[in-house]
Simulated assay, not measured.
Amino acid sequence: MARVGLTTERLTRAGAELADEAGFDQVTVSALARRFDVKVQSLYSHVKSSQDLKTKIALLALEELADRAADAMAGRADKDALTALANVYRDYAREHPGRYAATQFRLDPETAAASAGGRHAQMTRAILRGYDLTEPDQTHAVRLLGSVFHGYVSLEMGGGFSHSAPDTQETWSRVMDALDALLRNWPAS
């Protein structure tokens, strides 16, 4: 019988909190059992393994991020929507570094297809429709935006910009300007 009060959702949320505190790579079923002061075996009716726990945390983080992005982008278009989406990624990474790392966790194709990851791509494509991009350029642009957002956020969080001027917020604003200009003037194939 499962320990009273332990549910898959509660364990997933506790694992997400642990990821934010200690790092996503430190999340294991054993670490979670220590957090609840229970034996590891008592968690196996809710999570199959550390891999399963990490998958659940990744799905939670993708859902949280997609919900925030949808709210931030509502009623916006073009550069305003682009900036709103980018700011959601950056702010989420700052607030929840472990969960943000979980959004990069490789999911199996079936799980990925059923996850909120698809919502992220749909929202990005919705922005790109305002820039008049068609396939395959939309796919190229989705990849570019994801690379820039994640790359900048990762470098910033890792301290990569901390020793030089100008301020990282100024650079971030200039990056948004540059992305907007690029998307408006997308190179022909």
Rank of each mutant, 00 (worst) to 15 (best):
F105L: 10
I127M: 09
H46D: 05
T111S: 07
K79I: 13
G5C: 05
A116H: 11
L85S: 13
D25M: 01
L6D: 09
V27T: 03
S49N: 01
L85I: 06
Q26G: 02
T12N: 08
D167W: 00
E64N: 10
I127G: 05
D137T: 06
F24A: 09
A121M: 10
V88N: 02
D132W: 09
A101E: 15
A19V: 07
R34N: 12
V27S: 02
A188E: 14
D25G: 15
G23I: 03
R99V: 05
G75N: 07
K54Y: 09
A22W: 01
A116I: 03
L133A: 07
L182Y: 15
A70V: 04
M157G: 14
K54H: 03
T139Y: 02
D71F: 02
A112P: 00
A188T: 14
E21T: 14
D108V: 08
L18Q: 14
A112S: 13
G117H: 11
L65C: 09
F161H: 10
L128Q: 11
D67W: 01
D37K: 14
S115I: 06
G117N: 11
T55F: 00
D67F: 03
E135H: 07
H120C: 02
G15W: 01
D20R: 08
V38W: 00
R10W: 03
Y131P: 05
L145C: 07
T103P: 05
R10K: 15
T83Q: 12
T124V: 14
T28D: 03
D91F: 00
D67R: 15
A74K: 13
A114P: 00
A114Y: 00
